[in-house]
Amino acid sequence: MAHDMGWSAQGGEPESSDSMKTFGGFVQGLREHAGLSREEFGARVHLSKHSVASIELGRRLADERFVELAEGALGDTGALRRAFRFMARQPGFAAWFKAWARLEREAVSLATYECRLVPGLLQPEPYARVVFGNSIPPLSDEQVEAQAVARMERQRMLRECPNTSFSFVIDEHIVRRRLGGVEVTRSLLDHMLGYAQLRNVEIQIMPLDCEVHAGLDGPLALLETPDGRRLAYSEGQKTGRLITDAKEAAVLHRRYATLRSQALSPLDSVGLLERIGGEL
């Protein structure tokens, strides 16, 4: 994705937001109403009292596991679940970028469809620098450097998580566009072909002459957690949305399955990438 779901070089917890502070205040109010100290509540949700404080003060992003445990500890009213779903649907909530990045590290499968540019997990460093160099407003040299380094660091997942399945469907025009020039495009194609050799990576190209296309609503990212939850992520310009609702996520997973059936096979996709490289 254009900014790869907000992944930044700084890492750590996301910056606070009004949504996080509101949710945290709601947690604190329910905890105090239940007569629990942060330490007592933390023991029930498997967090330290300091982590509980971070959530209540809007400094730490809650996840679904926390919400379910907190519901059990606070009377199982469903109030936290409703508040969490509402917050997850808010457009422009940049902190969800970081939530997705954390989920990626634990996922058993990751799938990405892109129609704008090569997904960050497949970008070689020269291509990534061109992407960040095209940012508007412009980034400083130091910012471009930091973002490129962070992207390469994140990309290590493909080799460091051999038991995680990575699937990519990419529109053909993306790899034909000579973003950054011929040499950058050559490095891109070589980089992608290298990753395509990994057993846990499948790259499929959606050909230009395909008369059907299940991805016309735009890019999407999907993952499955170790406990079988299926989540999705949708991104637009300056907005991002983590989709935790099971029915909504299921629709996007079906779309991606259709995309894979419409795209070239992984073997044919490798052949196309090799031909495009030969044309440069």
Rank of each mutant, 00 (worst) to 15 (best):
V27I: 03
L117K: 14
T239L: 15
G58C: 00
F168E: 04
F41G: 00
Q143Y: 06
S269R: 08
G11S: 08
H3K: 15
L231R: 05
N134F: 15
L222F: 04
P126R: 04
E13N: 05
R38N: 00
A94Q: 14
P207H: 04
M1A: 15
S8L: 07
S265H: 09
D76S: 10
P162V: 08
M87D: 09
G92S: 07
G240Y: 06
T22H: 11
Q155G: 05
D209T: 07
F166Q: 02
A79E: 15
I243P: 04
T164L: 08
T244Q: 08
R254P: 11
Y113P: 03
E211L: 14
E15L: 10
S48F: 05
Q155S: 07
G92Y: 10
E40T: 13
L158V: 01
G194M: 10
I136Q: 12
L57T: 11
P137H: 10
E248I: 09
E106F: 08
D209K: 04
E32M: 07
I276E: 07
V212I: 14
S51Q: 11
A249T: 03
S16P: 01
G215W: 01
E172S: 04
A250C: 07
F93Q: 09
S135T: 10
F23T: 00
Q147Y: 08
K238Y: 14
F93P: 05
V67L: 01
A249H: 02
K21S: 03
S48C: 02
P162R: 05
R31M: 03
C161K: 11
T225Y: 01
G58I: 02
R89I: 14
I55E: 05
Y195K: 09
L80G: 04
D268L: 13
E68P: 09
M157N: 13
A107R: 03
P266V: 02
R89N: 15
E15W: 07
L252K: 08
A88M: 12
L57I: 09
A95Y: 01
S51G: 11
V182T: 15
I170M: 07
R60W: 01
R159I: 15
L189T: 06
